[in-house]
Amino acid sequence: KFNKERVIAIGEIMRLPNLNSLQVVAFINSLRDDPSQSANLLAEAKKLNDAQAP
């Protein structure tokens, strides 16, 4: 279950337009470290993406 959620979360994070490459890598590394947190990490990535919108 967590592996599928992690793959989906990674794909979504990679498509967030307002994150820089270091932020994307940090979120992906966090997902690798704890796949059970996929939903929480994706939500945090989306919040950061929205906050950094031009």
Results as ranks from 00 to 15, higher is better:
28 I>C: 06
31 L>H: 01
51 A>T: 08
33 D>H: 12
30 S>D: 05
4 K>C: 15
31 L>G: 01
32 R>M: 15
40 N>C: 10
35 P>E: 05
38 S>C: 08
20 N>T: 13
33 D>Y: 11
11 G>R: 13
15 R>F: 03
37 Q>I: 08
49 N>Q: 01
24 V>D: 00
2 F>D: 12
4 K>H: 08
10 I>L: 08
23 Q>M: 04
37 Q>F: 07
17 P>W: 07
12 E>K: 14
41 L>A: 08
40 N>F: 14
6 R>P: 13
36 S>W: 07
39 A>M: 14
32 R>D: 15
11 G>H: 08
16 L>V: 00
42 L>K: 03
44 E>W: 14
13 I>E: 00
51 A>F: 09
47 K>E: 07
42 L>A: 03
22 L>M: 11
18 N>E: 01
46 K>L: 08
17 P>A: 09
32 R>H: 12
43 A>S: 12
28 I>L: 14
22 L>S: 10
51 A>P: 01
32 R>W: 15
31 L>T: 02
41 L>P: 00
21 S>L: 12
41 L>E: 02
49 N>S: 07
4 K>E: 15
4 K>S: 14
3 N>K: 03
21 S>F: 13
27 F>E: 00
16 L>G: 01
6 R>D: 15
23 Q>E: 02
18 N>A: 03
41 L>C: 07
9 A>Y: 09
4 K>T: 12
7 V>I: 11
53 A>D: 10
2 F>E: 15
28 I>V: 05
2 F>L: 14
25 V>T: 12
43 A>W: 10
39 A>L: 13
34 D>K: 08
42 L>H: 02
36 S>P: 03
11 G>K: 12
21 S>T: 14
26 A>N: 07
41 L>R: 06
24 V>T: 05
48 L>W: 05
54 P>K: 08
4 K>A: 09
7 V>D: 15
44 E>T: 09
30 S>K: 12
22 L>Q: 13
27 F>S: 00
50 D>G: 08
17 P>H: 08
54 P>E: 09
5 E>H: 06
45 A>R: 00
4 K>Q: 14
29 N>K: 11
38 S>P: 04
9 A>E: 03
8 I>Q: 08
25 V>D: 05
23 Q>I: 04
54 P>H: 09
12 E>T: 13
40 N>P: 06
48 L>M: 07
41 L>N: 02
42 L>S: 03
24 V>Q: 05
5 E>Y: 09
39 A>C: 14
33 D>P: 02
4 K>M: 04
51 A>Y: 10
11 G>I: 11
4 K>R: 05
11 G>A: 12
40 N>A: 09
32 R>L: 14
53 A>C: 07
51 A>C: 10
44 E>A: 13
23 Q>P: 00
48 L>F: 04
9 A>V: 09
36 S>F: 09
43 A>D: 10
45 A>Q: 00
44 E>F: 14
33 D>V: 13
24 V>Y: 03
29 N>W: 09
17 P>N: 06
42 L>C: 03
45 A>S: 02
34 D>C: 13
50 D>R: 12
17 P>Q: 08
10 I>H: 03
29 N>R: 12
6 R>H: 15
30 S>H: 09
49 N>W: 01
49 N>I: 02
35 P>T: 06
48 L>A: 05
44 E>Y: 14
10 I>M: 12
19 L>V: 01
41 L>Q: 04
13 I>R: 01
23 Q>H: 02
22 L>T: 11
38 S>Y: 15
30 S>F: 13
7 V>Y: 14
10 I>R: 03
25 V>Q: 13
21 S>I: 12
14 M>E: 03
17 P>C: 11
34 D>H: 14
27 F>K: 00
16 L>S: 01
47 K>C: 10
26 A>E: 06
27 F>T: 00
38 S>V: 14
11 G>Y: 14
32 R>I: 13
16 L>Y: 03
23 Q>V: 02
36 S>H: 08
37 Q>Y: 05
6 R>Y: 15
14 M>V: 06
44 E>N: 07
46 K>S: 04
36 S>G: 06
33 D>L: 14
34 D>Q: 06
25 V>A: 11
48 L>E: 03
20 N>K: 11
8 I>C: 12
42 L>V: 11
26 A>C: 13
36 S>E: 09
10 I>G: 02
44 E>G: 05
51 A>I: 10
15 R>W: 03
9 A>P: 01
20 N>M: 07
6 R>E: 15
29 N>Q: 10
51 A>L: 09
54 P>L: 09
45 A>E: 00
42 L>N: 01
50 D>E: 11
54 P>C: 14
47 K>S: 09
7 V>T: 09
22 L>R: 12
8 I>A: 07
4 K>N: 07
33 D>G: 07
4 K>F: 03
42 L>E: 02
8 I>Y: 11
30 S>G: 05
9 A>H: 03
25 V>G: 08
15 R>H: 05
25 V>K: 11
24 V>C: 06
24 V>M: 06
13 I>M: 04
52 Q>Y: 05
35 P>C: 14
2 F>K: 12
35 P>K: 04
50 D>I: 09
15 R>P: 00
26 A>F: 14
25 V>Y: 13
3 N>I: 09
35 P>M: 11
40 N>W: 14
24 V>L: 08
49 N>F: 02
53 A>M: 08
45 A>H: 01
47 K>Q: 10
53 A>I: 07
21 S>M: 10
6 R>A: 15
11 G>E: 10
50 D>M: 12
28 I>H: 02
39 A>D: 05
43 A>L: 10
29 N>D: 05
54 P>Y: 11
34 D>T: 06
1 K>F: 08
40 N>E: 08
39 A>R: 13
54 P>M: 12
18 N>W: 13
26 A>P: 01
49 N>A: 03
52 Q>S: 04
25 V>C: 13
29 N>V: 10
